[in-house]
């Protein structure tokens, strides 16, 4: 009998890891404006997960394979003249989701329901899921520790980074792979909406509270883990969907910060409008 034998304990452990990981990686997603890309990745890996569970192979493998296909498809569609990245992403997103829906309906009665994919079920996490999240999370945090400064440079001034001789293509690819890995690992466990919510809301909230890149990462990670645990607690108390509650707690944190954060909140700016404290010209 270990601590992880209780499903509530497993849910809390997963919530903390998921919140921390998505919060930290989310800073890059927010700074590089990859939210739509992350959203599309979640939908495009969906048929892979369904197919894998129909064929009886590892769902993480299926998700990864379709994630790679997704990146290639977006790249191929974007290369055509007159095509925008968001258009290509939109097409692949819609196509991936429809394919997944058809597979779910046409395949044998599978245990992976469509709704589980969309909204997840963090309370039914097993130890295998926990181990995968922990392992992938550790690798990703280590990669961010090594490449974080270069990724920060890239987010701030992409041309400048290329001009300074950094391997821009490799670094961009690395970032997309990190986002993809987070999506592939989190989506089967906690669902599309929660993955996206935790990738974006804690990081956006952290940006309202601090002006330093490093602190933004730390605050986002803590906020992510905090939202996840709080949301789980509330959902158990009121007996409502866990993933949705966590996503709402994360969003509520953002809205509250939007109002009260000292420099960028609505209240802060009201106070700031006193004469003599004009901000520097843009």
């Amino acid at each position: 009998m270990t601590w992880f034998d209780t499903y509530t304990h497993r849910a809390y452990a997963e919530a903390v890891m998921v919140g921390l990981l998505a919060g930290v990686v989310g800073v890059q997603v927010v700074l590089r404006r990859l939210a739509f890309h992350a959203m599309a990745t979640t939908h495009a890996t969906f048929p892979g997960v369904v197919l894998a569970s129909i064929l009886g192979i590892d769902i993480y493998l299926g998700g990864t394979a379709f994630g790679v296909l997704f990146s290639i498809a977006v790249l191929a569609l974007t290369r055509r003249p007159g095509r925008t990245a968001s258009g290509a992403i939109g097409v692949v997103l819609a196509a991936g989701f429809a394919l997944g829906a058809v597979l779910v309906a046409a395949g044998p009665a599978s245990d992976r329901k469509l709704s589980a994919f969309l909204v997840g079920s963090i309370v039914t996490i097993d130890t295998h899921d926990l181990a995968v999240t922990a392992a992938v999370g550790t690798v990703i945090l280590a990669l961010l520790a090594v490449f974080g400064r270069e990724l920060g440079f890239a987010a701030f001034d992409h041309d400048g980074m290329r001009a300074a001789g950094h391997p821009a293509l490799a670094l961009d690819l690395l970032l997309l792979l990190i986002v993809q890995a987070v999506v592939v690992v989190l989506t089967p466990a906690v669902g599309v909406m929660l993955t996206l919510a935790l990738l974006v809301a804690p990081a956006a909230t952290a940006r309202l509270w601090t002006d330093s890149l490093r602190r933004t990462g730390v605050v986002a990670g803590l906020l992510g883990a905090g939202s996840a645990v709080t949301g789980l607690e509330l959902s158990r108390h009121y007996d409502v969907a866990a993933g949705a509650t966590i996503a709402l707690v994360a969003a509520a944190g953002f809205v509250v910060s939007l109002l009260v954060s000292p420099r960028h909140g609505a209240l802060g700016r009201l106070l700031d409008r006193r004469p003599g404290t004009a901000t520097a010209p843009a």
Binding site: A35, L118, M193, A197, A203, R207, A244, T245, A247
Partner: peptide
């Protein structure tokens, strides 16, 4: 200014959708 368009969209999207899921749940 500080929150990019796509970030704002993603937050509104996930929050509103979650409200729907909560009601259904």
């Amino acid at each position: 200014r500080r929150t990019g368009d796509d970030t704002a969209l993603a937050i509104v999207l996930t929050a509103m959708f979650s409200i729907g899921v909560l009601v259904v749940s």
